[in-house]
Simulated assay, not measured.
Amino acid sequence: MPLQFHLCIMDAAKRVVVRCVTVFLSLCISAVVIINLFYRRWKIGKDFFHVKTHVAPQVLLDPNLGIHNYIYLKNQGIKLHYIEKGDRDKPLMLLVHGFYESWFSWRHQLQEFSSDYWVVAVSLRGYGDSERPSKTSEYSLMKMVEDLREFTLALGKENCTFIGHDGGAVVGWTLVGKYPELFERFITCNASHPLVYRTHLRKSFKQMNKAWYVFFNQMPYLPELCLAVNDYEELSRFYSEGNKNAEIFTDEVMEAYKYYFSQKGALSVVVNFYRNIDFMSTLHIPKIKVPTLIIWGTEDTFLEKELAKLSALECEDVQLKYIDGAGHFVQQQEPVYMNKLIWEYLSITQ
Rank of each mutant, 00 (worst) to 15 (best):
residue 5 F to T: 12
residue 15 R to P: 00
residue 16 V to Q: 10
residue 19 R to K: 11
residue 35 I to L: 14
residue 41 R to V: 10
residue 44 I to L: 06
residue 54 H to P: 04
residue 59 V to C: 15
residue 62 D to L: 04
residue 70 Y to S: 03
residue 71 I to L: 14
residue 71 I to S: 13
residue 78 I to D: 05
residue 84 E to Q: 14
residue 85 K to L: 14
residue 86 G to Y: 08
residue 87 D to V: 08
residue 92 L to D: 08
residue 93 M to L: 15
residue 98 G to A: 09
residue 100 Y to K: 05
residue 101 E to H: 13
residue 107 R to T: 12
residue 111 Q to G: 13
residue 111 Q to W: 09
residue 111 Q to D: 07
residue 116 D to F: 02
residue 117 Y to M: 06
residue 120 V to F: 03
residue 121 A to P: 07
residue 123 S to I: 05
residue 127 Y to T: 03
residue 131 E to R: 10
residue 131 E to C: 12
residue 132 R to P: 01
residue 132 R to G: 08
residue 135 K to H: 10
residue 137 S to W: 00
residue 140 S to L: 05
residue 143 K to V: 08
residue 150 E to W: 06
residue 159 N to G: 02
residue 162 F to M: 06
residue 163 I to H: 03
residue 163 I to T: 11
residue 165 H to F: 09
residue 166 D to E: 11
residue 176 V to M: 14
residue 181 E to L: 01
residue 187 I to M: 11
residue 196 V to F: 09
residue 196 V to P: 07
residue 197 Y to W: 13
residue 199 T to G: 03
residue 200 H to V: 00
residue 204 S to N: 12
residue 213 Y to I: 10
residue 226 C to K: 09
residue 227 L to Q: 15
residue 229 V to Y: 08
residue 238 F to Y: 12
residue 239 Y to N: 07
residue 240 S to I: 02
residue 242 G to Y: 01
residue 246 A to P: 08
residue 246 A to T: 15
residue 251 D to Y: 06
residue 254 M to Q: 14
residue 260 Y to P: 02
residue 261 F to D: 00
residue 262 S to N: 02
residue 264 K to N: 09
residue 265 G to A: 03
residue 266 A to R: 01
residue 267 L to V: 10
residue 273 F to S: 06
residue 274 Y to K: 02
residue 277 I to Q: 08
residue 287 K to Q: 05
residue 289 K to Y: 02
residue 290 V to L: 11
residue 292 T to R: 08
residue 294 I to Q: 04
residue 299 E to K: 04
residue 301 T to S: 07
residue 302 F to V: 01
residue 302 F to E: 04
residue 305 K to D: 03
residue 309 K to Y: 15
residue 310 L to D: 03
residue 311 S to H: 08
residue 325 G to R: 00
residue 325 G to D: 00
residue 331 Q to L: 15
residue 337 Y to R: 15
residue 340 K to Q: 13
residue 343 W to H: 15
residue 347 S to R: 12
